[in-house]
Write a protein that binds this DNA or RNA. Structure first.
Lengths: 247, 247
DNA sequence: ATCCCTTATTGAACGCGTTCAATTATTCCC
DNA sequence: GGGAATAATTGAACGCGTTCAATAAGGGAT
C-alpha cells in the first residue's frame, strides 16, 4: 500500500531518537535551546520508561543535572512537556506525510497512510500521550485540545488532511467539511490507541483500515448532488455551532 | 414539544436541591450514609460556587465539620466526588426521562427530550463537570469515562436511549447500534456544553435540535434494505473494535 | 455490663507540582 | 573594560491531594 518509512530513514528526527545528554558532569550547560531541549528529551525518555504520572519533575530535573525550578522556567507545567513533544510529533508527521503523499494515489490509501504513520510515530508513547487529554473538560485551559490555544495545532493537523484530499474532485462544502471530520476521526483513533491492549496495536490498525474505508464509502455517497440539501444542513449546523468558520 | 419538568416537580430530587447541613455545631454526626451524603453535598455545592480546582478538599471537610481524612474515607479522590454526583444525575435523568417518554411520540422529540433534560439537570454544573473528563486518556483509571469501571454507567445511559428507540420499527442491527451512537452524540453534546459560552446555552440547544434532526434523517436513510451491506460493515467494524459486543 | 470486632474519625505527615526571591551568567552598548 | 539589562539558574518553601497510624464509636454476642 503506502510506503512505510522506517524510523531510521527519518533524517534528523527529533522524536524517535531523543538525543543523549550532550555534556558530562561539571561541564557547563549550553545555550537556551540546548537546555530546554535537554529537559524535554529527558522528560520524554523518562515518561516513556516509567509513565507520565510515575515520573516526577524532580527526576526529570535530576536527569539533566539542573534544579527543579529550571524545568518550570522552560515549561509552564508537567503536561506542557507532553504538549511540546506532541508539537514535535506533528512536525515529524508533516514531514513523513509529505514524503508519502506524492506516491499515494487512492484517497483511501492516503488517509490510511496519514493515520498509520501518525500511529507509527506515537507507538512508544502510550504512557505519556494520555496526558494530552487531561484538560479535555477544561475549556479555558491552555492545554485543552479543544480550546482556543490549541487551535493552531488543530488547524495544522487538519491542513494535512486537506492536503490528502486535494486531488479529489469534491464539492466545495465537502472539501471544507472533511478535514474537520477526519481530524475528529484521527482523535478517536488516538484515543482508541490508548485503550487498545491488542498485540502490535492490531485492533487500532484494523479500526483505521475499516473506518477509512467507511469514510471513503460515505464520501462516494455524500458527493451526490441529490444529497446537497443534507450537506447543507450539516454545514449549517456546524457553522452555527462554530465548529467551522462562517463563509 | 416535550413536557419540561421544572426542577421543583422532581420529587425527592437529590441533585438539584442539595440538602442543607442536617446538624449544628457540636451535634453528633449521624449514620454512615448521612456523613457520606453530607460530604458529597457540601462538595458539590462548593464546586458549583467556586469551581472544582478552586475548591480544596480541606474546605469541603471544613464545611461539613469533619477531618480532611474523612472525606477520603468515603471517596477515593476529589474527582470521585464528581463521579458520585454524576451517578446521581444519571439516576435523576432516568426518572425524568421515564416520566416524559410515554407522552412523547415522535422519535425526534424523544431524543431531543433526552438530551435537553440532561442539559437541564446539568445546567449549573459546568464548573465541576469537566472533572469527569480528566482521565479520558488514562485507560486503566477507575474514573475514565471510557474505561471498564465506568461500563455500567455507560450501559445504563445507553439503555435510556434504547428505551427511546423502542417504539421505532428498526432492523436489528440498527437497534443494536444506535444506543452507542446516540450515547457518543450525547457525550459530544456534554463536551460542547462545557465549551459553550452562549447565553442560556443557546448554541448547545441548537446543536441538540440540529444533530437530532440529522440523526433521525440518517436513520430514515439507513433503514433502507439497500444499505444493509453498509450497516453490516459498520457493525463488523465496531464488533472487531469491541465497541459493541459480538453477537 | 463486658468483650471483641468492625467502622468511623482524627490529626499529623508525606510527596509532588509549582512558585519565587535571590543569585549568577550572558549579552549588548558605550 | 564597565555597566546595565536581560536571561538562566538555584534552593527553599508553599499548598494541596492524599495517606495512615492511632483513637474513638458502634454493634453484636455472651
Amino acid at each position: 500500500m503506502f510506503k512505510l518509512l522506517s524510523r531510521t530513514n527519518v533524517a534528523g528526527s527529533e522524536v524517535s531518537h531523543p538525543q543523549p545528554l550532550a555534556f558530562q558532569a561539571g561541564e557547563k550547560i549550553g545555550s537556551r535551546e540546548t537546555t530546554r531541549e535537554l529537559i524535554l528529551n529527558a522528560a520524554i525518555r523518562l515518561f516513556r520508561e516509567r509513565g507520565f504520572d510515575e515520573t516526577t519533575m524532580r527526576e526529570v530535573a535530576s536527569e539533566v543535572g539542573v534544579a527543579l525550578g529550571l524545568a518550570y522556567y522552560y515549561f509552564p507545567s508537567k503536561e506542557a512537556l507532553v504538549m511540546a513533544y506532541y508539537e514535535r510529533v506533528q512536525r515529524e508527521h508533516r514531514i513523513v506525510a509529505q514524503q508519502n503523499l506524492p506516491h499515494t494515489r487512492a484517497l483511501r490509501d492516503r488517509l490510511a497512510m496519514l493515520l498509520n504513520t501518525k500511529l507509527d510515530i506515537l507507538k512508544d508513547d502510550r504512557k505519556l500521550l494520555g496526558a494530552l487529554f487531561r484538560y479535555t473538560g477544561s475549556p479555558d485551559h491552555p492545554l485543552s485540545f479543544l480550546g482556543k490555544n490549541t487551535a493552531p495545532l488543530r488547524a495544522d493537523c487538519m491542513s494535512l488532511f486537506a492536503e490528502a484530499l486535494e486531488p479529489e474532485r469534491l464539492p466545495d462544502d465537502l472539501r471544507e467539511l472533511l478535514p474537520l471530520l477526519i481530524w475528529a476521526l484521527h482523535m478517536g483513533v488516538l484515543l482508541y490507541f490508548l485503550y487498545d491492549a491488542s498485540p502490535n496495536l492490531r485492533r487500532t490498525r484494523r479500526l483505521v483500515d475499516g473506518s477509512v474505508g467507511l469514510v471513503v464509502g460515505f464520501l462516494g455517497l455524500a458527493k451526490s448532488p441529490l444529497l446537497r440539501p443534507v450537506r447543507r444542513s450539516v454545514m449549517t449546523l456546524l457553522r452555527d455551532a462554530r465548529l467551522i468558520p462562517r463563509s
